[in-house]
């Protein structure tokens, strides 16, 4: 295993940060319009061991971003990807980890309206960004039309790549890359479906684009 640090010079360790529990972290984030304050280190440690003081602490940074319309401010471990931030800290597990290397698309989310592989995007880079995940499109009562089209077309089997396919499809439609099934296939090829539902995914995207 290895983790990548960002190319820029690492900021000094945030010695001032206390190490709160996840509970205190969640308690200090607030919804849109509120003032978000958090002293927590996301992806940082919760240590009770006596040697903690002498241990090497994680490099951290402060970042403020919005996820599905909800604003968060926190201190993150610089190594934390957007995907791990979503899955391990915000409990938004709809975005999936399939390869953690930008090769499968299961982690696709929209950042400021553009589709990105959240596994390749470090959270610290996203100060001021607006992130939309599968949990942020459609509502419990009214699915996004593409979500409904996926159900109608049976455009998935195991369902693991599905949130990424749908987010990528939303992006693809928004970009206007839906002129033909071939064009959709080309522009959706960053999203692997190992169950092989490709023809049905293309149909779902095509139909949803047609209804727009």
């Amino acid at each position: 295993m290895s983790t990548e640090l960002s190319d820029s010079a690492p900021p000094p360790p945030n010695e001032a940060s206390p190490a709160p529990t996840r509970r205190t972290f969640i308690a200090t984030t607030t919804a849109v319009g509120g003032v978000a304050i958090a002293g927590g280190v996301i992806g940082g440690s919760i240590l009770s061991e006596p040697e903690a003081a002498a241990a090497t602490a994680a490099p951290t940074s402060r970042v403020a971003l919005s996820v599905n319309g909800r604003r968060h401010t926190f201190t993150v471990d610089n190594r934390t990807s957007l995907l791990d931030l979503l899955r391990e800290h915000l409990e938004l597990t709809g975005s999936k980890k399939g390869c953690n290397a930008g090769a499968c698309g299961a982690c696709t989310v929209l950042v400021d309206g553009r589709r990105v592989n959240s596994c390749l995007t470090l959270a610290v880079r996203l100060d001021g960004a607006k992130v939309t995940t599968i949990e942020g499109i459609g509502t419990e009562d009214k699915l996004h039309p593409l979500q409904q089209a996926f159900i109608d077309e049976d455009a998935f089997q195991c369902g693991y790549c599905t949130p990424g396919q749908i987010m990528s499809g939303v992006g693809c439609i928004e970009e206007g890359h839906t002129g033909s099934p071939d064009e959709i296939r080309e522009w959706m090829s960053g999203n692997i479906c190992r169950c092989g539902c490709y023809p049905k995914i293309v149909r779902a995207v095509e139909q949803t684009a047609g209804r727009k």
């Binding site: 597990t93 599968i134 949990e135 459609g138 979500q147 996926f150 049976d154 998935f156 369902g159």
Partner: peptide, 13 residues
């Protein structure tokens, strides 16, 4: 289907 397209189906991790 609804659980899967909304990202609410819970996989192992």
């Amino acid at each position: 289907g609804r659980l899967k397209v909304t990202g609410r189906a819970k996989y192992s991790a």
